[in-house]
């Protein structure tokens, strides 16, 4: 398909979004990620039955934590698509990229620079 999507998105493969934990997402932010989106299978289509529902709950937990500590919950998002929907993935990637650009860089980066 040779679809275009923003080159600043780093993909981390997991066997199922159910593997993604709150801690994994938080660590990404702690290390300076500007945003994290978890892209799972369509709801109801999880090969492991409830992996993507678990992921959604965890992303919601992360959003609450990020809002509390002043990083901004919007920086974490959950998307769903089927494995055959390449163009949809590209669309989500562009959407996420735009959202994060509006929010600006992760405040952690600036704070780390100041502290250094």
């Amino acid at each position: 398909m040779r679809l275009q999507y923003p080159s600043d998105i780093k993909i981390i493969f997991v066997p199922c979004t159910g593997k993604v934990d709150v801690l994994h997402i938080l660590r990404a932010f702690e290390k300076g990620a500007d945003g994290v989106c978890v892209v799972g299978c369509l709801e109801g289509d999880c090969h492991f039955i409830s992996g993507n529902f678990r992921a959604r709950k965890r992303v919601e937990q992360v959003q609450k934590i990020l809002d509390t500590i002043g990083i901004g919950g919007e920086r974490a998002q959950m998307y769903n698509l089927s494995s055959g929907e390449g163009p949809r993935f590209a669309q989500f990637a562009i959407e996420m990229d735009e959202r994060i650009r509006k929010l600006g860089p992760n405040p952690m980066k600036l704070a780390k620079k100041k502290a250094a």
Binding site: F29, E30, I65, I69, I71, P107, M108, A115
Partner: peptide, 21 residues
């Protein structure tokens, strides 16, 4: 252990963001 990790990570980010070492 997991809850410790989540809390520690959140607190580290909070204090760094506040400019507190």
């Amino acid at each position: 252990k997991k809850e410790v990790g989540v809390m520690a990570s959140a607190l580290r980010m909070y204090f760094l963001n506040q400019g507190q070492e």
